[in-house]
Nucleic acid binder design. Structure first.
Lengths: 152, 152
DNA sequence: TTAAATCGTTTACAGTTGTAATCAATTCAT
DNA sequence: ATGAATTGATTACAACTGTAAACGATTTAA
């Protein structure tokens, strides 16, 4: 039924998911080993996060003997979407462009990256708008401040 | 001095900060009014967040009579930095370009936005690198998978 | 001047998150 | 076959978050 249960993945849980996404299939021992190195977590700590991810449906389990093989029930792309939303939920629609620009300014990019982004930008011109409509409530951004209906 | 006390601002606290950033100065009543509309918060709820922000040093207070006028002790730009980091902390360095591209794909942008981003991109070419070095631990991205030292 | 309203502070409380020890069942090694 | 190791499950617990009522001081209105 593909029921769209929405669950959030916490920062720590992301660490676990990244291991599973990378390997496609992983045992708890593999996950524990990676994160023992990276995060200095005791095995029990990693086990807790694995357990929580299984409970919330982010990881599937295949039983093999007495142990499990874990696979991801959500894709990385899908999960990234929430992360990205987290960023833009806090700013005015009209500030999205500038925020992306800032992101680029602060990023280390390869020539290929830049070429790719330029490509995307070019294709974006087709559906670009003239004025972006502010989505904020009055009092939380300057757009709705007084009689001036234009943003910034 | 200027001791760089680092504190995190939660989602709910952001709602309060946005009001203060917008008005520069705000009374609790103003903040409460805005958020009563937007978030359906009881005045007591907003008061809690104001109190926590003052305690953690994100808001300054000026006493005027028996009440306070609140001003921001951190800029929006500064706070945005944490938000942005939150996004990129979860992905491989080598995937930053693609993630920015995805952000652009999904965003609604104006012609001006696109022009601005193009400008930034152009200036980025100067310090663009040929290959981005992966910063992940082995097991959390494909870069470090086997003998192949190149990413993706 | 006294009752009502307002404002900041204190207290409350459940749910989430980070961190981990312990336990019970099973499997592996001797 | 029996002791050791491993694995998933249960329990623990403090800090952080979201949500809010209650309280005490003070100011304003009647």
């Amino acid at each position: 039924m593909t029921n769209e249960e929405k669950f959030e993945i916490t920062d720590s849980e992301w660490e676990v998911m990244r291991v599973v996404w990378t390997r496609t299939k992983a045992t708890s021992k593999e996950i524990i080993n990676v994160l023992q190195d990276k995060k200095d977590w005791k095995p029990a700590t990693t086990k807790t996060f694995i357990g929580r991810l299984v409970k919330k449906g982010a990881l599937n389990t295949e039983t093999v003997g007495n142990k499990f093989i874990y696979t991801a029930a959500v894709t990385e792309e899908e999960s990234l979407k929430s992360l990205k939303a987290g960023l833009f939920n806090h700013i005015c629609n009209t500030a999205v462009g500038k925020t992306i620009a800032d992101l680029i300014k602060e990023a280390t990019l390869s020539h290929d990256d830049i070429a790719m982004i330029e490509e995307i930008l070019k294709s974006k011109k087709k559906d670009a708008v003239d004025v972006i409509v502010c989505n904020c409530v009055p009092g939380q951004c300057h757009c709705k401040e007084n009689h001036n209906m234009n943003c910034h």
